[in-house]
Design a protein around this nucleic acid. Structure first.
Length: 615
DNA sequence: CAGTGAGCGAGCTTCCGCTTGACTT
């Protein structure tokens, strides 16, 4: 019989911690939240200060039964759920559901799963922070009120089965508005000049920093270069450096796995979960970029052993996110000496990504030498510019290069320049003026939408993947590939004092695994923007988060905060009753019925699209 | 008389955040 019972949220964590503690401790898991508001409308007593009724969730009945039995046998119970708002609420719900007595119940917190951190936590127990629990309650009740009052409005006025909520509706709004930006984008053509010089058989590529708006201007520039002398006017060498990115959080892992491994966000989480359960990586739902001292040491030792100590550079990263709660470490390998881990191909690839990213974050900067060459044109005041980049010391680039969202490779890999000197006269091979086109903002991928949501402080690491699934399941958004269209462009080439014009073809607008809004998403979004601009506002979450913080600090009552929001919100919900559902959404006249002469109208009915004759 | 369709009523849909594992495809 163990004297002490420790309850954490995750079973894998429980197993690890039990290994750190002696046989006087039994460590078990609650499997996350154990109680929640029931589904019906009895969950919140709106008339009585929004008093909530909680129930043990169906899938947690068995868990609570077991925990109750273990709690009875223990002398002291340590509630060790995560050190954040939700974790505090879990501890409180456990205390209530297990009917734990204050005298035997202690609340402990730690933000890394290391022996020293756990022991320190056990030496510094505290009580449950009631204000923090109230803040969570406010969050939960607000989400329920918004979701369960808004969704039925959509059923009545648009279509059954639809949903709306603080997080998902903003996600849909982003996709809808981006699509409209793309549709309305005004494509502009321009001409970009690049020159190639022959330096003793080696190529030197230079570009004109300015672009021409018209073919005539580009043509005129090329004309002016006929017979010109090209001379190096200046050579500017500057040292530069690049620093590694921070270790992975949930959202950055999802982004990199999407770009480098083509994983969906859900797939990334499933594979990471398996690595976590196998003890290969730390917890995968986190917003923290922090590494424990123990991890930093492990990385340092591994880097020194594998690459040499000059490659080691321990660093602590700070989160840029306002909304981060940082209850865990960053996502990292548990054992840095394991360069590979995982049972199948995908696990191995994801682990390798995590290993490299974490190791790189603790490595030295890469040192570069950047050279800028300015090339004068005897017949013009314009100057061509060539740039080169030489890596003097690889540093972290030895193991990891972060990718970017830009599909446009932009400037090609800058390499080493051939030996050059000031005053040197250059031998022109050709100058090209290539027509280019401005591009609309990129449509979202699953991962870039997650990134955007995180930047706006909307959603949490545990909900990013489910949110992305929900908006697809509701058919607000579809992920798909689209084929591009052919587009003509013009290229002018000056070679041997002769200008040739070519008309060429490129593919434009091709999309791969991008998020597109459906018609229903447009209708729902416009309806919500029209009638509930406050709730669907991009800063709504940030605003209510500020109030949750005040509740957590004890400077605001949770029920007052909810009342302030709900009064006006509920009134708006009632006002929508008056709206004629035919006014909402995309009804369209198709023509007139030849028999009756009545108009034929396509519109959205309760069960989907329909066509009707007459009003 | 069989089949169609209007009209009615009952029951259902839905949120976010914390965890896995039990399901099906």
């Amino acid at each position: 019989m163990s004297k002490n019972l420790v309850i954490v949220e995750s079973p894998a964590k429980a197993k690890t911690i039990e290994g750190y503690l002696g046989k006087d401790f039994k460590v078990v898991s609650s499997y996350g939240h154990v109680r929640d508001l029931p589904k019906g409308d009895k969950a919140i007593d709106i008339a009585n200060g929004f008093r909530p009724t909680y129930e043990v969730t169906a899938d947690k009945k068995e868990v609570i039964k077991n925990l109750r039995k273990l709690a009875k046998e223990a002398e002291t119970i340590y509630l060790a759920s995560d050190d954040d708002r939700e974790g505090e609420a879990i501890s409180w719900h456990l205390k209530e559901a297990l009917k734990l007595k204050d005298d035997f119940t202690k609340r402990i917190v730690f933000r890394e799963i290391t022996k020293s951190a756990i022991q320190k936590a056990l030496e510094n127990p505290r009580n449950i922070d009631e204000d923090l629990v109230y803040a969570q309650q406010a969050r939960r009740i607000l989400d329920r009120l918004v979701g369960y009052e808004l969704s039925p409005v959509l059923w009545k006025k648009i279509k059954r089965g639809l949903s709306a909520g603080r997080v998902q509706s903003v996600a849909v709004r982003l996709v809808v508005e981006r699509e409209r930006e793309v549709e309305q984008f005004n494509v502009q053509s321009f001409f970009k000049i690049s020159a190639i010089f022959d330096i003793d058989g080696k190529e030197l590529k230079a570009e004109l920093p300015k672009r021409f708006d018209t073919e005539a201007e580009a043509q005129a520039f090329l004309e002016s270069c006929k017979g010109a002398d090209f001379t190096i006017e200046s050579l500017d060498k500057k040292p530069g450096k690049r620093s590694p990115a921070a270790p992975f959080t949930t959202s950055t892992l999802q982004q990199e796995a999407s770009r480098k491994l083509s994983f969906s966000v859900a797939q990334t989480m499933t594979v990471a979960q398996r690595l976590y359960e196998a003890g290969k990586i730390s917890y995968m739902r986190t917003d923290s970029v922090n590494l424990s001292d123990e991890a930093m040491n492990g990385a340092k030792n591994e880097i020194s052993a594998a690459y040499g100590s000059e490659y080691s550079h321990p660093r602590k990263f700070k989160t840029k996110s306002q909304s981060a709660q940082e209850a865990h470490e960053a996502i990292r390998p548990t054992d840095f000496s394991a360069h590979t881990a995982g049972k199948d191909y995908n696990e191995k690839r994801l682990y390798e990504l995590i290993w490299k990213r974490t190791i790189a974050s603790q490595m030295a900067d890469a040192e570069l030498e950047k050279t800028t060459v300015s090339i004068g044109i005897s017949t013009s005041n314009e100057r061509l510019v060539a740039t080169g980049e030489v890596i003097v010391f690889e540093g972290f680039l030895k193991v990891y290069i972060e990718s970017t969202d830009d599909e446009d490779n932009g400037d090609e890999a800058k390499g080493m320049l051939p030996p050059l000197s000031i005053g040197q006269s250059l031998n022109l091979d050709n100058i090209k003026a290539r027509q280019g086109f401005t591009r609309p903002p990129a449509r979202y991928t699953e991962a870039s939408l997650v990134k955007k949501l995180e930047e706006m402080g909307i959603g949490r690491p545990s909900t990013y993947a489910p949110t992305i699934s929900t908006i697809q399941k509701r058919e607000y958004v579809i992920k798909e590939n689209r084929e591009g269209n052919d587009r003509q462009y013009t290229e002018l080439i000056l070679k041997n004092d002769n200008i040739e014009s070519h008309s060429l073809t490129e593919v434009t607008g091709a999309e791969k695994s991008k998020l597109f809004p459906t018609n229903i998403a447009m209708v729902v979004n416009d309806f919500l923007v029209d009638h509930f601009p406050n709730v669907i506002d991009y800063s709504f979450t940030a605003n209510v988060e500020e109030e949750f913080d005040q509740i957590a600090q004890g400077s605001q009552h949770w029920d007052v905060m909810i009342q302030n929001f709900y009064g006006k919100f509920h009134q708006t919900v009632e006002e929508t009753e008056q709206i004629d559902r035919r006014e909402v959404g995309a009804s369209r006249e198709l023509g007139t019925d030849p028999e009756t002469g009545k108009p034929v109208i396509a519109r959205l009915g309760k069960f989907g699209p329909l066509v009707q004759i007459g009003e």
